[in-house]
């Protein structure tokens, strides 16, 4: 009856050692650094793949509408029209191609699933970690193509590969063709180079659309895969 039983039954031998352990935990936590982020005063350090906002790299877009179709909550609006392009060679058939008129994402509807970015076959959509775009009017949350392009400049470079990592597939493919071409050129030096397209030999630079300032893309080796891919696919497309 008078035996001192601790209020909370503990499994340990010494009565009350559990209580002491609890006190130690709180005291230790007090001496440690707090985890609070003082956000408006200090910007958070976000990981590079943060899903903040979606940026559009318009030149890569072919108006294939995959993103708009796959979007679970139908928040992507795309308008386009067809234009005819004069034939490349005289006497050839003239080609038609899609021209983007409107590309808008309604971030009031978007649920940041990232499916549009996953399905885009031409790497026209990217995640950006920017998140401070709250508005007082919900209509302002529909970002048109100019705003989406602005977000594109905030897309960080993808994280570098591990030192001993395998080369990205696109780079490997491009280099293989380049090497094959080079050997073919040296062997058949006399043959003219008309029939062979020179595109794959110098992957990123020439096919790159001339854009004002391209922040990080061309410098990064892993990143240069995207224009490469675009170049090859577009070639087959048109």
């Amino acid at each position: 009856m008078a035996e001192p039983v601790p209020p909370t039954p503990t499994r340990s031998r010494i009565p009350g050692s559990g209580l002491a352990k609890g006190l130690a935990v709180t005291l230790r936590t007090m001496t440690r650094k707090t985890v609070t982020e003082q956000y408006p005063d200090a910007q958070p350090e976000l990981p590079p793949r943060t899903r903040g906002v979606i940026g559009l790299f318009e030149e890569n877009c072919t108006v294939c509408m995959l993103c708009a179709r796959e979007c679970p909550d139908w928040c992507i609006y795309i308008d386009s029209h067809k234009e005819t392009v004069p034939p490349v060679a005289p006497g050839g058939r003239e080609r038609s191609r899609n021209v983007l008129d409107r590309f808008a994402i309604d971030f009031a509807l978007c649920m940041y699933c990232g499916i549009c970015i996953e399905v885009c076959p031409f790497d026209a959509l990217f995640w950006s970690p920017e998140f401070e775009y709250a508005e007082t009017d919900i209509h302002e949350l529909t970002h048109e193509r100019d705003k989406l392009r602005e977000w594109m400049w905030t897309v960080p470079a993808p994280p570098a590969l591990d030192p001993s990592a395998e080369e990205p597939k696109e780079l490997a493919a491009a280099r293989k063709t380049a090497e094959k071409l080079a050997t073919a050129e040296t062997e058949q030096a006399a043959q003219p180079e008309k029939s062979e397209p020179t595109k794959p030999t110098d992957p990123p630079k020439p096919t790159k659309p001339t854009e004002p300032t391209e922040p990080t893309k061309p410098t990064d080796p892993a990143d240069s895969t995207k224009p490469t891919k675009r170049a090859t696919t577009q070639e087959g497309d048109s």
Partner: peptide, 13 residues
């Protein structure tokens, strides 16, 4: 303040 720091927070700032 003490309660906040014991819970890893900062408390009123």
């Amino acid at each position: 303040k003490v309660m906040a720091h014991m819970q890893g927070r900062l408390g009123p700032m």
